[in-house]
Write a protein that binds this DNA or RNA. Structure first.
Length: 584
DNA sequence: GCCGTTTTCGGCCCGACTGTTTTCAGTCG
């Protein structure tokens, strides 16, 4: 029979955790199921093979009980334990738990007392003023739930990093200029360069003992603040023009390091870190690192002026924010084996640029000048191929004409060299969209999918695999075709294709276009594990988008990519000869 | 339900905030 896929198993484990919460089960039992789901989320390699080999219990967070349940689920496609839980509570009640102001306890109470089974029922119960009569609820709770329901309908869940990050950086500059502010940094998922951001966080400090109130008040009064949600001694939350929420926290200088660390997250990173702290008889919070006495009471506070000191106190190496996801970085930091993450200054070249010859907004020369201004030593001009007619893809004749223009610009004496290339479509049958004779004359060939996205995964994998057989292909472009928040990735067997890319000497790009970030960090980890050569690219359709490099670098760093993994660390001539020489 | 160079049992991350309370439970990050 057909087995369920890994994502289905993960979904069932998380649903069990949520249903156990509704039942009021021990939070530790709930956490055990969530942890097992997290483990599978990060698992590389074939889950089915592991089930059949009976080695599930070797995974962290997998004991006898969960291993048995996952085995049942995998082999039969269903799990009796899960179905029994669903008899006690309808699945739609889980959506009620997600309403702001409602959690599992309250959802269960609403279900038992009022028969609320979904969000619509919750809305009706609030409007009928039935909720305020329940023990533990009141008129204010009822109003807060109604507001929570309204906010869920209104706002898009999360904001793309490329929208949120520049807003955060602009506000960071304003916060630093507030009266009495000593230090301020962006925190939260924006500092970790997560793909999407829920809200913005800024952590700032004033001198020890100084009153943060004047800065708080000045902040709330700044133009661009649409609404003040709440303001306390250490925290002010506002909605900005444009709808993003920004939380500003101000602490004394002494606590800045631990506060910045705390509000940078991620939660999973912190949870594990605190467990490690506990083993060392320390306790960790936004208010510092304290020793714990044998009787459990808090002892002396350690001096922790910055994040590096915090990690030192735990005998760990400093973990860069991009890695703080509990994806193995904690173990590596304890073993002093963290990767030395690639930095933007390590890169000499920028790849994947379009011009007005296809669907770009700026000319070859303008792109060159902009790349030079960014300090790049070379830029690959890679316009579309003929089949991409919507993008005015270049015919072979127009491509040759572009080479003349590139030669002319290269003779201007700019500090950047343009490389002749193309982003060729990988056609439906896996062939490339320029004749081999044309491709052979190019310095850089990126192969990408731009149409017929809806093939099944087997067909798509075969299509791309065939393209890898063409020795003129150098770089696999935006591998999954996803557009974050807009278009799902097309189905393909990523690990098999990365195996083949490694075997055939095809490089893979980490496309830094903010909507793509493709390879994702998770996929880039898989590529690195196989020794696949990587290229950090910008997919720029205008001069301003050459700066997409920052998002490509961030994605690479989130994947633990080092300088040596990235081909654009090489000077232009070596970059080209390497691309050609590694093809097998 | 998982886990173990201080434990095979007794732990399991931390604190703020809110509303409903009269000492705390639930939610949130």
């Amino acid at each position: 029979m057909a087995h369920p896929d890994k994502a289905f198993v993960i979904g069932v484990l998380r649903e069990i955790a949520a249903l156990l919460q509704l039942q009021g089960e021990s939070v530790f039992k709930v956490r055990a199921y969530e942890r097992a789901a997290d483990t599978l989320d990060q698992l590389q390699g074939d889950l089915g093979a592991r089930v059949e080999a009976g080695t599930l219990q070797a995974l962290p967070g997998f004991g006898e009980a969960i291993a048995t349940k996952v085995t049942e689920l995998w082999t039969t496609g269903a799990l009796g334990y899960h179905q029994a839980l669903l008899k006690a509570f309808p699945r739609s009640l889980l959506a009620v738990c997600d309403v702001p102001g409602v959690g599992p306890k309250r959802a269960a109470a609403l279900y038992h007392a009022l028969g609320v089974v979904d969000r619509a029922g919750l809305q009706r119960a609030c409007e009928a003023q039935q909720v305020r009569a329940l023990p533990g609820f009141g008129a204010k709770s009822e109003a807060a739930i109604l507001e929570g329901l309204a906010s869920m309908g209104a706002q898009a869940a999360r904001t793309p990093l490329a929208v949120a990050r520049p807003v955060g950086e602009a506000w960071l500059a304003r916060v630093r200029a507030l009266p009495g502010i000593v230090r301020a940094e962006l925190a939260g998922s924006a500092r970790r360069w997560a793909e999407t951001v829920g809200d913005l966080d800024i952590v700032a400090s004033v001198s020890d003992g100084a009153d943060p109130l004047p800065a708080m008040q000045a902040f709330s009064a700044l133009p661009g603040v649409a609404k003040v949600l709440g303001s306390g001694a250490t925290k002010t939350s506002v909605i900005l023009d444009g709808g993003l929420q920004l939380d500003l926290r101000i602490v004394g200088e002494t606590d800045f390091g631990t506060a910045l660390h705390h509000f940078t997250g991620s939660k999973a990173h912190h949870v594990k870190l605190r467990g490690i702290a506990r083993e060392k008889h320390l306790t960790l919070s936004e208010w510092g690192v304290h020793r714990i006495h044998k009787d459990g009471s808090a002892g002396a506070k350690l001096a922790v002026p910055d994040e590096a000191a915090l990690y030192r106190a735990l005998h760990m190496d400093f973990v860069p924010p991009e890695l703080r996801e509990d994806h193995g970085e904690i173990e590596a930091a304890l073993a002093h084996a963290l990767p030395r993450l690639v930095e933007r200054d390590d890169l000499l070249g920028i790849t994947h640029a379009h011009t007005t010859d296809s669907d770009g907004k700026d000319s070859v020369e303008d792109m060159a000048r902009a790349a030079a201004a960014l300090g790049a030593r070379y830029l690959t001009i890679t316009d579309h191929s003929p089949t991409a007619s919507y993008a005015h893809g270049l015919t072979a004749d127009r491509l040759r004409a572009q080479w003349d223009e590139i030669d002319r610009v290269n003779d201007l004496g700019l500090s950047v060299r343009l490389l002749k290339g193309a982003e060729v479509d990988i056609l439906e049958d896996g062939s490339l969209d320029h004749p081999d004779a044309v491709l052979a004359k190019l310095e850089v060939v990126i192969g990408s999918i731009h149409q017929r996205h809806k093939m099944d995964a087997d067909q798509m994998t075969a299509r791309i695999s065939k393209a890898f057989d063409n020795p003129h292909l150098h770089i696999w472009g935006h591998a999954t075709g996803r557009l974050i928040g807009q278009r799902e990735p097309y189905g393909l067997h990523m690990e098999a294709l990365l195996d083949k890319a490694a075997a055939k000497g095809v490089a893979v790009e980490i496309n830094g276009a903010p909507k793509r970030l493709d390879l994702s960090a998770a996929h880039a980890r898989l590529a690195k594990a196989r020794g696949v050569a990587l290229v950090l690219s910008v997919d720029a359709h205008a001069t301003a988008q050459l700066d997409n490099l920052r998002y490509a670098v961030a994605t690479a760093r989130r994947a633990g990519i080092e300088k040596r993994d990235v081909l654009t660390r090489l000077p232009a001539a070596k970059f080209v000869s390497h691309l050609h020489g590694m093809r097998r």
